[in-house]
Each structure stands twice: as C-alpha cells, then as structure tokens.
Amino acid sequence: MAQESGDMLSHEQIWGAIDRLAERHALTPSGLARRAGLDPTSFNKSKRLSADGRLRWPSTESIAKVLDATGASMEQFLTFMRPKSSFSSLPDGAIPRHGSSIPLLGFAQAGAGGFFDDGGFPAGQGWDVVEFPAAPSQKAGVYALEVQGESMMPLYRDGDVLIVEPGAQVRRNDRVVVKTREGEVMAKVLLRQSPRSIELMSLNPEHPNRTIELSDVDWIARIIWASQ
C-alpha cells in the first residue's frame, strides 16, 4: 500500500484505524493479528517504521483478513481512520478507573509482581489500555487480561480478552481468575468454596481440576465479559 499525497489517507490514519478496530473487539493489535491468521507481530508499533525511518504500511491483504476475521465492513474501517484514540501505553503508571477505557495486561505478565495491589486491583506501571465494549457504567477497578496460549481452549482462545472485576462476590459456577501467592494466574470455574479452600474446574478438559488452600490464594476476581 503506497502513501498518497493531498487529501488521501495518511500512514497515521491507516494504522489508527487498525488500532481502533482492535479496540472495538477488545483486542490488542497483536491479538487482532492472531485472530486474522497473521503473524502476531504484524501490527506492532515497532513494525510501522523501518530501521531507516521510512514509513511501513499494512498490506491490503492483511486489512482484508482483519475485516473478514472481525466481520467489519470497509465502511466501518474508514470511520476508524481518525487520530490515535484511547489505546495507548499508560504514562507514569496511571490507571484509569472510569470511562470506557480500562487497563489491559497479558496473562503471562499478570503472574509477575508489581501489577496488582493487595486487593487484586490494577497498580504500577506496564499496563496498556483497551476500550471496554460494554456500557460505560462499569464499576471502577475492572480491567482486562489477554489470553495467551491454548491452555483455556475451547472456551477461550489465544488473543481473547477477559474483563475482570476484582473484589466482586463470587459464587458457585462463576468463571473466575485466580492468582496464587506463588504468582500463578489461571482462569477457571469456581465449583465450591469452603472456609479453608476453593475447588476450581479447568476450562480445558485436558487440564485437571484444582483445589487450592485459601491461604495460598493471593486474590480471586470474577470474569464479567469476554471477547469471543
């Protein structure tokens, strides 16, 4: 795709439209690329300029694939061609608590220290932002975790985004995300909870169910929405 002059589409507009399309489906640019069957790094910001500073453009084939994968029309894609919006890296570790944008983190990162406070709420630096595609009345503190790998198949695929509400009351058969004190993060179904332990059913039938002592649980949060 070559750059045009005058009032034609700009490099920034084209890439901005891809970012907006990813936001609309609660995906990161890499998640959108994976969903379209492309290399996960195809839409990374580092790929948008060559080593010598020249502009690099997404191919018409890759745009066609993401439109097909998301069900978006070319007309919808054109409406997204506006300056960069809510999807960006968060400056100075700021965590948005209100509005339609929420913090986003990959499952692999979630197991590392420094991303959550003692209650399982977003904290620290390193978070991205994604548009929450539900009503703007979501409770403060919700955030998104991007599924990485195939361990949650067939329910959740690589690149799906789970919207999580920390601090919410969880009940039997709720889908939850659990972080252990050893740093393991997992999405499961809560089968039962006793005063001393929780029993979790795995989403993937190839993985066994888990029983974890409450003393070993760092936090547990309810999954309230998933992009699929």
Rank of each mutant, 00 (worst) to 15 (best):
A26H: 05
H25C: 10
A17R: 00
A168S: 14
G149N: 05
T180D: 07
A110F: 09
A2F: 13
G16E: 12
T60N: 07
L104R: 06
A134T: 08
I198W: 07
K139P: 07
E61K: 04
T180W: 09
V142T: 06
A144E: 05
E61C: 12
Q169S: 08
R175D: 07
S10I: 05
V177P: 00
R172P: 09
H98A: 04
R24W: 14
Q3W: 12
T70S: 08
L190Y: 03
N209R: 03
W225H: 05
P122K: 00
I14H: 14
G6V: 01
A112D: 01
D68T: 07
A33M: 03
A110Q: 01
L78F: 10
G149R: 01
V178L: 11
L21P: 02
L9T: 08
M186A: 10
R222Q: 11
A64W: 04
R48M: 03
A221Y: 03
S151R: 10
E131L: 13
L190E: 06
P195Q: 04
R157P: 05
I223S: 00
H11F: 13
A168R: 15
Q228R: 15
G106S: 03
S202W: 01
G99I: 02
Q148S: 10
R56N: 04
V217E: 12
M152E: 01
R34D: 01
A140T: 00
Y156V: 06
P133Y: 08
K45L: 15
S73N: 14
K188M: 12
L155P: 07
V142I: 11
Q228P: 02
E184H: 09
D174F: 09
T41W: 08
S197C: 11
D216C: 14
L203N: 12
Q125T: 06
G53I: 14
R82E: 15
H25T: 01
E213P: 07
P96R: 09
P83D: 06
P122Y: 01
V189S: 02
F107D: 00
R210Y: 10
G6I: 00
K65L: 11
E131D: 12
G167D: 15
A36I: 00
L190M: 08
L162Y: 12
P96T: 00
G149P: 08
Q13G: 06
G113E: 11
R171F: 15
G37F: 01
G111N: 05
G99K: 04
V217C: 13
E61H: 02
W57H: 11
A64Y: 02
G111P: 04
A168M: 15
I224T: 10
S137N: 13
M8V: 10
D52Q: 12
Q76H: 04
P154A: 09
R181P: 03
S73W: 11
L104N: 03
L191D: 11
L190D: 02
E206L: 07
L21C: 03
M8C: 07
S202A: 09
P96S: 09
M81L: 14
D68L: 15
A26E: 07
S197E: 04
A168G: 10
E165I: 10
V66M: 08
M74C: 13
G111W: 02
A69C: 14
P91K: 06
N209G: 15
L162C: 14
Q125D: 11
Y156W: 08
K139I: 13
D117C: 13
A135L: 11
T79K: 04
S151D: 06
S194G: 07
H98D: 02
L55M: 07
A187R: 13
A226F: 04
G99A: 04
R192Q: 10
L104Y: 02
